[in-house]
Simulated scan of single mutants.
Amino acid sequence: IHYFHRQNKNTMPGDNITIVAEFILLGFSDLPKLQGFLFGMFLSIYLCILIGNGLLIVITKIDPSLQTPMYFFLGNFSFLEICYTSVTIPRMLADLWTHKGTISFVACAVQTCFLYILGVAECLLLGVMAYDRYVAICKPLYYPLIMNHKVCVQLIVVSWVIGVPILIEETYQIFSLNFCGPNKLNHVFCDAPPLIELACGDTYKIEVFLHVAALMFVITPFLLILVSYVKIIATILRLPSTSGRSKAFSTCSSHLMVVGLFYGSGSIVYLRPKSSHSAGSVKAFALFYTTVTPLFNPIIYSLRNKDVIAALRKLLPK
């Protein structure tokens, strides 16, 4: 365990305050006999995420029948899923392989920052995809006009960049806390909740800042999704034919399932009261929204979408 020391202006000469220079991610250190199995399992999951989402990106780019806003957003969402998982899984695989969990202070800050930037982009993009379905089903005559290519590109760019300045500032605030003692994070990657638990002194202001950021970039897109689907369902129920209702709902069901997986597991980690936290359950749900959701994304869209299945059949050898 490495520390570095600095003098504090409020201390007497010769008194040092111990500052953490690196953290130790405990990860799965409590399961020493399963390290090899877990490495193989997460490597397989990561490869499946890369291949599955990579195939979705390819078919949404090259298949003529998928050149619509819905599949444009899906291709971007798949790329985002690859980036999101690449922030955590490769590092976790390295720790399992080497049996070392040390991560430098700067590397921990960078991982946290990218995790939040990409996580917020995912929340916003899920909101954009819900809005796209709302316009397609509730305002079909205006759909080509409202969701033209320029607007789609603008929505993607906004989803990626709108939260970046605030999230960089949020990360700076977290890592400006005084880490003066223990440096063991009982987690699989660097994240705010376990970091705040290690901080010395008052963390109230940063916790308020975190909740405000979550309200802006996580809850607001979720409310947009909720409102969109209330209107979508109301419109679908007014459709005269059963086949029309079935077709309309099938275009939304895949997106709804992905939203449920991502928000469900994420809210359990971040919105539960501290008293109900257990390290094992927090790690499990954190892994769920960082690995299982990106893994299921291509599976859900492939199994429930005839256009995607047809495009995959054309692309892949029989």
Rank of each mutant, 00 (worst) to 15 (best):
N10H: 11
T203S: 13
L315T: 10
I51V: 15
K283S: 13
C108R: 01
L223N: 01
H99S: 15
I219W: 08
M92L: 15
A279G: 03
L155C: 09
L295I: 04
V153W: 05
V258E: 02
N297D: 04
A279P: 01
I59P: 01
A214W: 11
H5Q: 13
L31K: 11
G75R: 05
I233S: 02
G163S: 14
I146R: 03
R6Q: 14
P294D: 08
L145T: 11
L195G: 09
S176E: 11
C180Y: 05
T235A: 13
L312A: 07
V227N: 03
D191I: 10
F209S: 13
V258K: 03
A121M: 06
A248F: 03
K318C: 10
P140E: 00
E122A: 13
L198R: 08
V258G: 01
Q7F: 11
P273D: 12
A94R: 12
F285N: 13
K283Q: 14
I225S: 00
F77L: 13
S44M: 14
I206F: 10
A199K: 11
L34I: 00
E197N: 14
T112C: 08
H5C: 13
Y142C: 00
L226K: 07
G119N: 03
T291I: 07
L118S: 05
L66A: 05
